[in-house]
């Protein structure tokens, strides 16, 4: 419950954030909503001698939609995602997923950027952003660079973000077609036993494109190109879905924990992915 002592900073702009990261190196961490970092600090599993609160940094709390693109500032909260009517129209999968993250209080504070940069395989947004082929903007001392969500996750808590970089924005093409974010969890607020993000488009009676990613079934989110391809040019009947599930099961690597043994998680993954594909297809 009681975190170790630290120095606290609340810079007014990104230059101030970057200067602190440069000065303190590994000893500094940025904090957005604080709903992963503070719990870890309270358990003394994260040691952060210099804590940089991002809340006063301007320009990272907006959602903008236009020209076939969606931009989400890293400090946009899960509550903001759920409340945004424009987003619910252009990318309804985001609201569907955000409603399944944590609980109301946590969603008022927890941000999309924090969810993505945390690197915990239990977080839901990483798999979702891989499904949607989002790009992450990282700002560091040398300027800005963009990394694909599909390239961002290296291992549990290890991402392509360097220690002195800040994730500032998420951009994605406005998704088309049907969607589903299906999550099996033990109770409200739990990380997934298995979750699947599916975005699918239809051409007549056939599937024109499909993107599939899964959450908490490996030490990173798993986007499976072959699982999506297995649906393309089919009528998304049970054989096609079985093939997609088989491809996905080849690529996940769940570990046993108190959500269940590996065999159970693989079973749940198949069931959840099947449901997600069926629901997405019914909406396509």
């Amino acid at each position: 419950m009681i975190p170790a002592a630290f120095d606290y900073y609340r810079p007014k702009d990104m230059a101030g954030v970057l200067a602190l990261l440069q000065e303190h190196g590994d000893d500094a961490r940025v904090m957005a909503g604080g709903h992963s970092l503070i719990p870890m600090m309270k358990l003394r599993m994260a040691e952060v001698p210099h804590l940089i609160d991002l809340q006063d940094v301007p320009g990272m709390s907006e959602i903008s939609i236009g020209d076939g693109k969606i931009r989400i500032g890293a400090l946009v909260t899960q509550h903001d995602i759920i409340a945004h009517e424009g987003l619910a129209q252009s990318a309804p999968i985001l609201r569907e997923a955000a409603m399944q993250i944590a609980d109301p209080q946590v969603r008022y504070m927890g941000t999309v950027g924090g969810n993505l940069a945390n690197g915990d395989p239990g977080n839901d947004m990483p798999g979702l952003m891989q499904c949607l082929d989002a790009q992450f903007t990282l700002v560091g001392a040398d300027g800005e660079r963009s990394v694909a969500a599909r390239e961002f996750y290296e291992a549990a808590y290890m991402t392509a973000r360097a220690d002195d970089e800040v994730l500032t924005e998420i951009t994605l093409a406005t998704p088309n077609g049907g969607y589903a974010y299906e999550k099996q969890k033990r109770k409200i607020g739990d990380y997934a036993t298995a979750a699947a993000a599916v975005q699918i488009t239809r051409d007549g009676s056939r599937c024109a494109s499909a993107s599939i990613a899964m959450t908490n079934l490996s030490d990173v989110p798993v986007w499976s190109q072959s699982a999506g391809s297995a649906l393309v040019d089919t009528e998304v009947g049970s054989d096609a879905i079985k093939a997609a599930v088989a491809y996905m099961l080849d690529e996940i690597d769940p570990t046993e924990d108190n959500r269940g043994p590996v065999a159970f998680k693989r079973h749940v993954a198949g069931a959840i992915l099947t449901r997600a594909i069926q629901r997405a297809w019914s909406r396509a």
Binding site: I38, P39, K42, V106, G189
Partner: peptide, 23 residues
């Protein structure tokens, strides 16, 4: 001490927050 129970909930600047998870 894991931000689950909500017994510490207060309203802060118009948001329901768990005051155990805020410095």
């Amino acid at each position: 001490d894991s931000s689950h129970c909500g017994a510490c909930t207060v309203t802060l600047n118009g948001k329901s927050v768990k005051s155990c998870t805020m410095f």
